[in-house]
């Protein structure tokens, strides 16, 4: 093993870890600010200028709170639950290409922790592990609301993963690779997948909302029905972990949506640049896209009310999955005949 490579990857992982946590932290602040602005309010503005230090205050509050483990709870699972949720949320970022390669003094640094050729499958695998964090937490609490929330979460996530995977197949067909790097490279300039596969993109975004348990699919934790859903019994930083995992997931799904459908680090007019400049601008563009999608998540949250559970299931099984299958069919047909009909 090359020592320089090991060092590269270690540093990249540490930076990624920090950046992910930082963005997740500030997503909580952004969420409150966006909510406030959308509701003609001001939002948190007491801690520091414009309330910038609010996440720190929230963090301190979370740590200082009394930690309660219910008597009837399964203690170990109760503790492991939030850990799994957090771990899986952080693991996904490993296969996302954050930018083009940067060359420093002849040494090329790849801005991606692991360019594995089944990148997308890895993402799906880790994301489906995320169900365990919620399920274990909800089950171990030994509380009916928690259990209901956990069951809702798992059935919802499993249902929407199907449609999500189906929607992706169209992209895989047109790209011919499972590696996210390849998929991003394939969208050079303005040739973003969203322009070629709008239906697939729409289905994917809807499913991403459901996978992240965000409104309008926040049934696992709907306050108005289930108190807090799967994290009803949680307090202190264990609750913080669950909330944090949710925001991390939001960041990661924004990154995946941007790299799969919105060109990742590609942008129109990118041919004018080259080398490190291109890589840096590309990364900046990528993060701009990610931030837009995080905002989009929040925007939707404060626009749409929650689905009813039967509506949720009907949308997933009877609308999105058939649509996704139709999309695969249409893509396949087009790919087969495009050469022959002279397009």
């Amino acid at each position: 093993m090359d020592l320089a490579l090991l060092l590269d990857k270690t540093i990249l992982i540490l930076i990624l870890f920090g950046v992910t946590l930082f963005i997740a932290m500030y997503s909580t602040y952004a969420e409150r600010k966006v909510a406030a602005f959308l509701q003609d309010r001001i939002g948190p503005d007491r801690a520091g200028p414009f309330g910038i230090l609010q996440p720190l205050a929230d963090g301190v509050k979370m740590f200082m709170k009394e930690e309660i483990i219910p008597n009837t709870a399964d203690k170990w699972l109760f503790i492991i639950g939030p850990g799994i949720a957090m771990c899986t949320a952080l693991m996904t970022s490993a296969v996302i290409p954050w930018g083009k390669n940067i060359t420093i003094g002849g040494h090329e640094i790849v801005l991606q922790v692991a360019d594995i050729n089944i990148g997308i499958l890895y993402v799906f695998g880790v994301v489906s592990l995320g169900v365990y964090g919620i399920m274990i937490g909800g089950w171990a609490s030994n509380n009916k609301f928690s259990l209901l929330g956990a069951i809702r979460a798992s059935s919802q996530m499993i249902s929407y993963e199907l449609a999500m995977g189906m929607a992706l197949i169209a992209i895989l067909m047109s790209t011919g690779s499972l590696s996210i790097r390849d998929i991003v490279e394939n969208q050079h300039g303005w040739h973003w997948n969203v322009l070629y596969q709008p239906l697939s993109c729409l289905i994917f975004i809807v499913c991403a909302f459901a996978e992240c348990n965000r409104t309008p699919f926040d049934l696992p934790e709907c306050e108005s029905e289930l108190v807090g859903g799967y994290h009803t019994e949680y307090s202190s930083m264990k609750l913080g972990f669950y909330l944090f995992a949710e925001y991390t997931n939001m960041f990661i799904s924004s990154a995946i949506i941007s790299s799969l459908y919105f060109g990742g680090y590609n942008f129109p007019g990118m041919d004018a640049f080259s080398g490190n400049t291109l890589a840096i601008i590309g990364t900046a563009v990528f993060f701009a896209k990610i931030f837009f999608f995080i905002f989009f998540f929040m925007w939707i949250r404060w626009t749409l009310p929650r689905f009813r559970y039967d509506q949720l299931m009907r949308l997933g099984w009877q609308v999105l999955i058939p649509l996704a299958i139709f999309n695969i069919l249409a893509t396949g047909t087009w790919m087969t005949f495009k050469g022959q009909l002279g397009f």
């Binding site: 966006v34 003609d40 309010r41 001001i42 939707i300």
Partner: peptide
């Protein structure tokens, strides 16, 4: 309908709030 709703909320985003600090 969703786009209509989003249009409404985004207009509120840029509206000046009535809050007095």
């Amino acid at each position: 309908a969703i786009l209509g709703g989003m249009w409404i909320t985004i207009r509120h985003f840029f509206r000046k709030g009535a809050t007095v600090r």
